[in-house]
């Protein structure tokens, strides 16, 4: 269980997050959504231990701010939005970096590469890959770091910051399915998302941020509603039903200009 209460973060004297409460349960994907600059990434960084914060945050009962890095590394893996690798490692070498502090070494790096659709890429130089392929290499790396979704210390957690940002639609679905499967097997997933359709499809719980504050948290039906989304994104958004996947969202382009 991830429990955050009153998370407040200031960067260069400006409050970027103010009193955010967030709960995420293992066994389901929890999405953080909201417009640009609403504090989504900041919240994920604070919960990853990257930023000084006030408030209380615990993961499986362990205080995030004071836990040693090796303890947190055994419990959660973080996939950041942009990662540059400064030396020309091979793909397999990059994935292996996840092994060093791994809790159980349950996941074979080659299998992890196959799971993200990069079987056969092992010996390729990482710098020669496309942006989308590089993003999936890092997903394989965090899967290797965590190993099984549940370990001796309870459920393990994937923190994903816009995991599908660089991916084509097929790989978006593949990556979200991986996250979904990880959660279904007992692990926890906390993902910053831009795509509301993918969020509706794969997340069970959604936290909506706007202006550094939590606007709403709850089930998909309770949070992803026309009125809450339109107010948070300051743009008319209407929920439509798709025959197969259940629902999708489209901003109403005509009214978008009026709202500003």
């Amino acid at each position: 269980m991830l429990v955050a209460e009153g998370i407040t973060v200031s960067l260069s004297g400006r409050r970027v997050l103010e009193g955010v409460d967030l709960t995420a349960r293992p066994g389901e994907v929890t999405a953080i959504v909201g417009p640009n600059g609403s504090g989504k990434t900041t919240l994920l960084k604070a919960l990853s231990g990257d930023l000084p914060m006030s408030g209380a945050a615990t993961l499986n009962g362990i205080a995030i701010a004071s836990a040693p890095v090796w303890q947190m590394a055994a419990l959660r893996a973080v996939l950041a939005q942009q990662i540059t690798v400064s030396f020309p490692f091979t793909v397999l070498e990059v994935v292996r970096l996840g092994l060093t502090a791994s809790a159980g070494r349950e996941t074979d790096p080659r299998q992890a590469l196959a799971r993200v659709g990069l079987a056969g890429y092992e010996a390729r130089p990482y710098p020669h890959l496309s942006g989308g392929e590089q993003a999936r290499v890092h997903l394989a790396r965090v899967l290797v770091q965590l190993g099984a979704p549940v370990g001796p210390g309870g459920p393990r957690w994937l923190f994903l910051d816009e995991p599908v940002a660089a991916l084509d639609i097929g790989h978006q679905l593949q990556v979200m399915q991986l996250a979904h499967d990880f959660a279904r097997a007992g692990g926890g997933v906390l993902a910053v998302m831009h795509d509301l359709n993918l969020t509706a499809r794969f997340a069970r719980s959604v936290a909506l941020l706007a202006g550094g504050r939590l606007v709403a948290q709850g089930g998909v039906d309770a949070v992803l509603r026309d009125d809450t989304l339109s107010a948070a994104y300051r743009c008319p958004i209407r929920l439509n039903c798709a025959p197969e996947s259940g629902r999708w969202y489209l901003p109403q382009m005509a009214g978008a200009l009026d709202a500003h």
Binding site: K45, S48, G49, D50, V69, W70, M72, A73, A74, A77, V78, A80, I83, T84, V85, S86, F87, F89, E93, V94, L97, G98, T100, A101, Q145
Partner: peptide, 21 residues
């Protein structure tokens, strides 16, 4: 060596993997 390998991902990522940066 292992820590320096991880540092090539950046300091934050190396910390996330569990290295005392």
């Amino acid at each position: 060596g292992g820590g320096l390998n991880a540092l090539s991902l950046g300091e934050a990522a190396a910390r996330h993997i569990g290295h005392p940066v």
